[in-house]
Design a protein around this nucleic acid. Structure first.
Lengths: 146, 146
DNA sequence: AATCATGACTTGCAAATTGCAAGCAAAATG
DNA sequence: CATTTTGCTTGCAATTTGCAAGTCATGATT
């Protein structure tokens, strides 16, 4: 089994494995963009509010692809464009994103996510399939925008 | 409200808030050490398998303290030593660590965490208080070691 | 067909961060 | 008192990040 670009010997701890893949400032934001905001193209992700640089975005996409979290193809409708999508492995990070969002909603003094919504997310989490979690997170995103 | 060391304007997205605090290779490993492995001293965290450098560990501890996830005090029994502990804000990251561990256990081909254990973690998660989650994760850690 | 625009990167370069290993000051131990 | 321990700090090289311009392939327009 190839483990791409391994810069440290992994300790065997599950947290360490995950952080080898997405332990940086940008990767989970890319996954959010794909999962929650349904972005598909490079330009769309570049346009997110956080202001990622193109070389960093390109490098993160490559890494996530190398580790099997995303897949890419040339868009047949316009071959200049690449379409990125989460693999199942990538989609299954949805509960991680939910928990992070719940934690942040509680602790970010500037949060715009309402507490009742978060309590519901926590209560219903077990029944959520990953696509529905994506909808959940999308609603969190919309709630934030209000 | 002071927001320590803010290097980017936060987008308002809960994922972005969290990544501002712990979006790096090492911070969640530090939190794991405190929460799961019950480590309390600098030297103990330095000794974790992943091999963090002392300047990075010191910087991460400072950042986590600045953001209110950990607290520190001189150990009255030995004033050379500093005791670090998670605050409530820090402890409430336990469900995030559980989800990351579950994800990794499923996707890390070298995982030593058994699947039945993970299914149980998923099923029981809702009833777990953060201290019990810490025990859970500790058991995951032990299972890994076997 | 030629020209221009678009999209996904790539590149050059400066700033920032990481990592190695030695160093330092305070406190404890022998 | 001399030595050891602890939690950092520091010097320095390597690596990564971030800004902005550049490049190449493809599509659209004239």
């Amino acid at each position: 089994m190839t483990r791409p670009g391994r810069t440290h010997i992994l300790s065997g701890c599950p947290i360490d494995y995950a952080l080898e893949i997405f332990g940086d400032r940008w990767s989970l934001l890319v996954i959010r963009d794909l999962l929650v905001r349904r972005k598909r193209h490079f330009r769309e992700m570049m346009d997110s509010d956080e202001g990622i640089a193109s070389n960093i975005l390109a490098a993160r996409l490559k890494k996530l692809e190398d580790w099997g979290l995303i897949a890419r193809e040339r868009d047949p409708a316009n071959r200049r464009q690449v379409v990125y999508a989460l693999t199942q492995k990538g989609k299954e990070l949805a509960p991680v994103l939910v928990e992070i969002a719940i934690w942040s909603a509680k602790h970010d003094p500037n949060t715009k996510v309402n507490a009742a919504f978060i309590r519901r997310a926590r209560r219903d989490r077990e029944t959520l399939a990953s696509e529905t979690v994506a909808d959940y997170l999308a609603k969190l995103d919309e709630a934030k925008a209000r």
